[in-house]
C-alpha cells in the first residue's frame, strides 16, 4: 500500500519536475537570445541618434532622419517587453507617449518653444518636463510637423531636438543597464520571496508580453485609425507624420515572431507553425501600399488594413490556444486587467 502510493506520487511529481526544467531553459533563452540583444540594438541605435542630432540638428538632415527611423525601429522591436526596467520611472512612456488623444505632445512642445524654456536645453532638467514632450513622438513632431516648424525660434528648436535625442539615449541606456544586470538576474532566479515566485511565473510574464504586444498592434496601431466603417480615423494612425504607421506594425510583428519562436523552442513543429502564421500576417501587411493609413476612407484601402487586423487577432487566438497550453501558462478565466 505504502509502496503503491509512493509510486503514484513519483509519477505525479515527475511531469512537474520536467516542466520546471523546461521553463527555466526557455526563460533563459528568451532573456539571452531575444531580450538582451534587442535592448542592446536599441541602445546602440539611440546612441547613433544622439550623435546624429549633435552633428546636424536640422529637420532636413538626411542622416538625422535616418537615425530617427533606425532608433524608432529599435524601440518598436522592444515595445512589447513592457515589464521590469521599461516600467521604472515611466521610461517606456517617456520614450513613446502614444496614443495621445488629447494632443499633449504638440501642446507641451509648443509651450517649451514659445517661451524658449531652458529645461529644453539641458538633458538633465529635461527629465522633469511633461513626459509627453519626450521620446520618439515628440521628436517626430519636431522633425515632421509643420505647425511646430512654423513656431520659429530655430536655434531653440535645434537644441531641443538634440535634448530630446540625448534624453531618449539616456533612457535606453538606463533600461539596458538594468536588463543586463539586476533584472535578468531577478528573472533567472525566481524564488518564493521574490517578485517572480517560480520559473513558470517568469514564462507567463514573457508569454503575456507576446500576446499583449500583438493586442496593442491590433487594437491600437490598427484599431485606432480604422475607427468604424462609418467613421474611419486615419489621423489617429501611429507616427503618421513620419509615415511609420504600417512600419511599426511590421517591425512589431517581426519582433513578436522572434519571441514566439523562442518561446516554442522545445517543440519544433509548433515553432514552425507559429513562424508560418506570423509570415501570413507579414505578407498581408506587405500588400498595404499606404504607409500612414491615410486611405482608410477608401473601402479598398480600408479592407486591406482590416484584413491585417483580423489576421493579427487570429494570431493572438492561435498563440493562446497552442503556445499558451504548451507552456502551461494560460491566463485564468477572470484574470483580465480591468475587470
Amino acid at each position: 500500500m505504502m509502496i503503491r502510493s509512493l509510486t503514484a506520487l513519483a509519477f505525479t511529481l515527475l511531469p512537474l519536475a520536467v516542466a520546471a526544467q523546461d521553463h527555466q531553459a526557455t526563460n533563459h533563452a528568451v532573456i539571452d537570445e531575444h531580450i538582451l540583444p534587442a535592448f542592446e540594438t536599441f541602445a546602440n541605435a539611440t546612441e547613433a541618434l544622439k550623435t546624429a542630432a549633435q552633428a546636424d540638428c536640422s529637420a532636413r538632415s538626411p542622416e538625422l532622419l535616418q537615425a530617427y527611423h533606425t532608433g524608432f525601429d529599435a524601440w518598436i522591436a522592444v515595445s512589447h517587453l513592457r515589464f521590469g526596467p521599461t516600467e521604472v520611472e515611466d521610461r517606456a512612456f517617456a520614450l513613446a507617449f502614444w496614443p495621445d488623444k488629447k494632443g499633449f505632445t504638440p501642446k507641451s512642445l509648443t509651450g517649451l518653444i514659445k517661451v524658449q524654456n531652458p529645461d529644453g536645453l539641458d538633458p538633465q532638467a529635461f527629465k522633469h518636463v511633461s513626459i509627453a514632450a519626450r521620446g520618439f513622438f515628440a521628436l517626430e513632431f519636431m522633425l515632421y510637423d509643420e505647425a511646430i516648424a512654423a513656431l520659429g525660434a530655430e536655434a531653440y528648436q535645434c537644441a531641443l531636438i538634440q535634448t530630446i535625442a540625448a534624453d531618449i539615449d539616456a533612457n535606453s541606456d538606463a533600461i539596458l543597464a538594468e536588463w543586463a544586470g539586476p533584472f535578468s538576474q531577478l528573472m533567472k532566479t525566481p524564488s518564493e520571496d521574490a517578485i517572480y515566485r517560480s520559473e513558470s511565473e517568469v514564462t507567463q510574464e514573457l508569454f503575456k508580453s507576446l500576446v499583449t504586444g500583438l493586442q496593442f498592434s491590433a487594437e491600437a496601431r490598427l484599431g485606432r485609425p480604422l475607427g468604424t466603417f462609418e467613421r474611419p480615423r486615419p489621423r489617429r494612425a501611429e507616427a503618421r507624420r513620419s509615415e511609420r504607421s504600417l512600419r511599426n506594425v511590421v517591425v512589431s510583428l517581426k519582433a513578436t515572431r522572434d519571441l514566439a519562436i523562442t518561446l516554442a523552442r522545445e517543440d519544433e513543429a509548433l515553432a514552425v507553425t507559429l513562424g508560418a502564421a506570423f509570415g501570413d500576417s507579414l505578407a498581408l501587411a506587405e500588400r498595404i501600399k499606404d504607409p500612414a493609413f491615410a486611405d482608410l476612407n477608401d473601402p479598398q484601402g480600408r479592407l486591406k488594413v482590416e484584413i491585417l487586423q483580423q489576421s493579427v487577432n487570429l494570431l493572438r487566438e492561435q498563440l493562446n490556444q497552442t503556445l499558451g497550453p504548451h507552456l502551461g501558462v494560460g491566463e485564468g478565466f477572470n484574470a483580465l486587467d480591468g475587470d
Binding site: F93, P99, K101, Q215, E219, R224, R233, G338
Partner: peptide, 17 residues
C-alpha cells in the same frame, strides 16, 4: 478607475501615464 479606453481600440488603455 481612471483608465481611458475607446471602443475603436477595444480594451487597450489609452492614458496610463
Amino acid at each position: 478607475g481612471g483608465i481611458e479606453t475607446h471602443p475603436d481600440s477595444g480594451r487597450t488603455r489609452l492614458n496610463i501615464p
